[in-house]
């Protein structure tokens, strides 16, 4: 399909949702390449967390170290940001984190599919965080949750203006939360693909594009972890707002 001309680069092709089992038509239940990679990340997570630490070692081995590192990293993060009450929501946040982290990292494998590069996925996750946090805020604090928007430390004349700003920023949260992750993933993968296209066009002399791919790939290794971290830490921050409103 890329044989029409030498410079026929399709950086976005890697994001196409492809029903790999049922063939042509995409129904809501069709098993797609995206679902396959979610399954692979599920298996990888089980491998690291269940197989890797099956021995319950006192002094952890390699896999168990990774599992413990991730687990206590998120645990400590929640305690740091949202306090001890935040620990109640640890299973949800941890699920979110490893789902995104493994999706991002596995997406760096050649020929893989990055499900976190899809706005539908990140948007759904961000929206569920948004809705959950809003519900928690109202359930825990009742109408005092609205203090989040009424900044009592600001001068009275400024408060209505700040109210508008705060309300807008509150409702923009799921948008920025999801687009930040999906955008980062998509951009990195598209850039790699573009350079790969150059390399394909140049053939054997493609030293510069391959060097660029290597560099971008190294950068992406950082970005995938950082974005998973950012998504999770923002979730914690929003949770903290819900648990302790009022600045």
């Amino acid at each position: 399909m890329e044989k029409q001309s030498a410079f026929n680069i399709h950086p976005m092709d890697q994001f196409i949702i492809d029903p790999i089992l049922t063939g042509e038509s995409l129904e809501w239940y069709s098993f797609t390449n995206q679902a396959l990679w979610m399954l692979i990340s599920l298996v990888s997570i089980s491998f690291v967390f269940i197989y890797g630490s099956r021995k319950h070692q006192l002094v952890p081995g390699r896999l168990q170290s990774i599992a413990e590192l991730l687990y206590f990293f998120i645990r400590d993060m929640i305690i740091d940001i949202a306090g001890q009450e935040g620990l109640r929501y640890f299973p949800y946040i941890f699920t979110l984190f490893i789902l995104i982290l493994f999706g991002n990292v596995l997406g760096l494998l050649p020929y893989s599919f990055t499900y976190t590069s899809h706005i539908a996925v990140t948007g759904f996750l961000a929206l569920s965080v948004f809705i959950a946090v809003t519900i928690i805020g109202f359930v825990k604090n009742g109408l005092r949750f609205l203090n989040l928007f009424w900044i009592s430390s600001a001068p009275l004349t400024l408060r209505p203006i700040l109210l508008i700003i705060e309300v807008i920023s509150y409702f923009v949260r799921p948008v920025s939360h999801s687009i930040r992750l999906a955008g980062n993933m998509m951009a990195g993968h598209a850039v790699i693909k573009v350079f790969a296209g150059f390399a394909g066009a140049l053939g054997l002399g493609a030293i510069a594009p391959i060097f660029a791919i290597t560099a971008v790939y190294g950068l992406e290794m950082l970005v995938v972890v950082i974005q998973a971290y950012v998504f999770t830490i923002l979730t914690c921050v929003y949770l903290n707002d819900a648990l302790h409103p009022g600045h």
Partner: peptide, 18 residues
């Protein structure tokens, strides 16, 4: 719809595993 369906399925399974 397809993406969200599979995402929900895997989220639920992953949450259960966690």
């Amino acid at each position: 719809p397809n993406q969200i369906f599979w995402l929900v399925v895997f989220c639920v399974v992953l949450f259960a595993i966690v």
